[in-house]
């Protein structure tokens, strides 16, 4: 083969590689559109991955209500009106840190704070990992963003085809009686030591208030009724101090009507989970201050 032919072949090979790349982009785009048209979820159904996927979740948050807490909260899915931000092992304070400079909620938004892990220290791994992400050029792009990662799209496709998500069907929670806030009169006041120890939580509450948010705390049910009791008592003290209503869903009714995967976390695919989310949002909106 002479030199010109060799050079020509080399260029053809480069062209083939580029065409292959473009063809893959086309396939990815089609899958993305298909999932979008069918209201597929672009994030992991279990949502346990940290960093990029979580940050992408944050970027997509919208609505007039924001639920924040640990992985227990994370099992609820975001929808058009309710944004969910749960970080495994963390309290709502870490969520606030992650949201900083990424997403802003309007004045009057209802903030629902999970009490179960309210005193947990932040997992630096989660925060550092998310802060590292600075490849913002393609944020939100249907080709290059994290939501459009081919591996995530395939997973979303599988989840959609094999296990239709609860969020794709509407829920009606009218039949469920409304829950009223716990009376906090009998709760002791916070001691000076506790005020210092729980400074991060108190500051977090103050920050939300500064943003013009209305707050309500909720205790989410777990199979073992006595679990997270200490956190709940601490949350009650904080609530009394900061004048926040507390809703306690850790009742036999909810423990029996919900499905837990491991005694603590709700099954994110169960229809009852999204109905429970809607109940919490309805009750919290009524009493948040």
């Amino acid at each position: 083969m002479n030199v010109t032919l060799k050079k020509k072949r080399r260029w053809y090979l480069v062209l083939t590689a580029i065409l292959g790349c473009l063809a893959c982009l086309g396939i990815q785009r089609s899958l993305f559109c298909w999932l979008e048209n069918h209201r597929g979820n672009f994030v992991s159904p279990l949502g346990l991955e940290i960093s990029l996927i979580r940050l992408q979740n944050i970027q997509k948050l919208k609505g007039d209500t924001l639920m924040m807490g640990s992985s227990i909260t994370e099992r609820f899915r975001s929808n058009e009106t309710t944004a969910v931000l749960g970080i495994p092992g963390n309290s709502f304070v870490s969520g606030l840190e992650l949201m900083e400079n990424v997403v802003e909620f309007p004045v009057g938004t209802t903030y629902i704070l999970e009490t179960n892990n309210i005193l947990n220290e932040p997992n630096e791994l989660v925060l550092v990992d998310a802060r590292k992400w600075d490849f913002r050029v393609f944020r939100g792009s249907p080709h290059f963003s994290v939501a459009a990662k081919p591996s995530n799209l395939i997973l979303s496709y599988l989840a959609f085809v094999l296990r239709p998500g609860a969020d794709n069907s509407s829920t009606n929670c009218d039949a469920v009686p409304a829950l009223s806030p716990e009376p906090l009169v009998q709760v002791n006041d916070m001691t000076a030591e506790e005020q210092t120890e729980w400074r991060r939580v108190i500051d977090g509450v103050r920050k939300i208030r500064q943003k013009g948010g209305r707050i309500c705390m909720v205790r989410l049910p777990v199979s073992d009724a006595s679990r997270y009791q200490a956190s709940y008592e601490a949350a009650c003290k904080i609530a009394k101090f900061a004048q926040i209503p507390v809703l306690n869903y850790n009742t036999p009714y909810w423990r029996n009507s919900l499905h837990f995967t491991d005694g603590t976390h709700l099954d994110s695919r169960a229809r009852s989970t999204s109905m429970f989310r809607d109940v919490i949002v309805r009750d919290a909106k009524n009493c948040a201050r």
Binding site: V14, I18, G20, C21, C24, L52, D129, K132
Partner: peptide, 24 residues
């Protein structure tokens, strides 16, 4: 040596690098 199917594979890998890289 590198063939046309091979070039397509490299195109696929390039695409994956651009769109499917993990956290740095």
């Amino acid at each position: 040596s590198l063939s046309y199917p091979g070039a397509l594979v490299y195109g696929f890998m390039l695409f994956m690098i651009l769109t499917n890289s993990g956290p740095q």
